[in-house]
């Protein structure tokens, strides 16, 4: 298990308000790590710091280090970091004015790729990886927003995969979806982890239990416990963790 991403003493702020408190954590390659915790515990903030989206919000900043393959992403070009670390958001957000095809191609085109064949190959490959190809192959030019919620989310996953990220971040990707669509996303994560390390934030503990090899529990901005999922759910070390996962609070 090689360490792909390493978080060291990360703290994050929205203006004066501290949302993350000295978090240190490691994420392994070809593995799914879930981050769970009650609302407001900082899990979304954490994941948004990992691809430097957090700081795009006015007034937001972060302190500490995040090492991708050993190099601190906060000392590199933010745009390049974001290309290497992909993200899927809670509410599916395909670009409203673009077709299905153009949505997936957007990342490539906007990064300067001109070769139409290369783009086409990548679009088809990404749609296949996102398990969406069969459903859209006859309607690639339809507006992206005409798809169902679950399909839109898979479209967003395809869009993120098209730029060949090294890590995939998912911020509660299935929370806006019905159970069938959720299951499809989980199956997708199961396939994707063969190629990419996946970090998934979820408020659904059973989902974390189903998809993740390792799980981290956060509360009030602090990392409380992290470990092999099976261990965390069968014999958690911290009382706080036990209280949350047995549903006694949160």
């Amino acid at each position: 298990m090689t360490t792909k991403l390493s978080v060291e003493h990360l703290s994050a702020f929205y203006g004066p308000k501290r949302a993350l408190d000295d978090v240190s954590l490691e994420f392994n390659d070809r593995e799914v790590t879930a981050i769970i915790g009650p609302s407001g515990c900082g899990k979304s903030t954490l994941i948004r710091c990992l691809n430097r989206i957090h700081e795009t919000q006015p007034g937001a900043r972060a302190e500490g280090r995040v090492l991708l393959d050993g190099a601190d992403i906060y000392e590199q070009d933010a745009v390049e970091v974001r290309r290497r670390i992909g993200m899927v958001f809670q509410k599916p957000n395909p670009f409203p004015t673009l077709s299905v095809y153009d949505n997936v191609a957007a990342g490539l085109r906007l990064n300067g790729v001109r070769d139409r064949n290369a783009i086409h190959v990548k679009v088809v490959e990404s749609l296949r990886k996102a398990a969406l190809w069969d459903e859209v192959k006859d309607g690639l030019m339809a507006p992206g927003v005409r798809l169902s919620g679950g399909q839109q989310q898979r479209l967003c996953i395809a869009r993120a995969l098209a730029v060949d990220p090294e890590i995939l971040l998912m911020d509660e990707p299935a929370s806006a979806l019905d159970p069938i669509a959720t299951a499809k996303i989980e199956d997708l994560v199961f396939d994707l982890k063969r190629t990419y390390p996946v970090i998934i934030v979820t408020h659904n503990m059973q989902q974390a239990a189903r998809v993740a090899e390792r799980t981290a529990f956060m509360y009030l901005g602090k990392l409380i416990e992290v470990g092999v999922t099976r261990e965390l759910f069968e014999r958690p070390k911290e009382k706080l963790t036990e209280g949350y996962i047995t549903g006694r609070f949160g």
């Binding site: 759910f233 069968e234 036990e242 047995t246």
Partner: peptide, 9 residues
Amino acid sequence: HAPVARDLR
């Protein structure tokens, strides 16, 4: 109830 931790044990 999908019990976990102490409940499960």
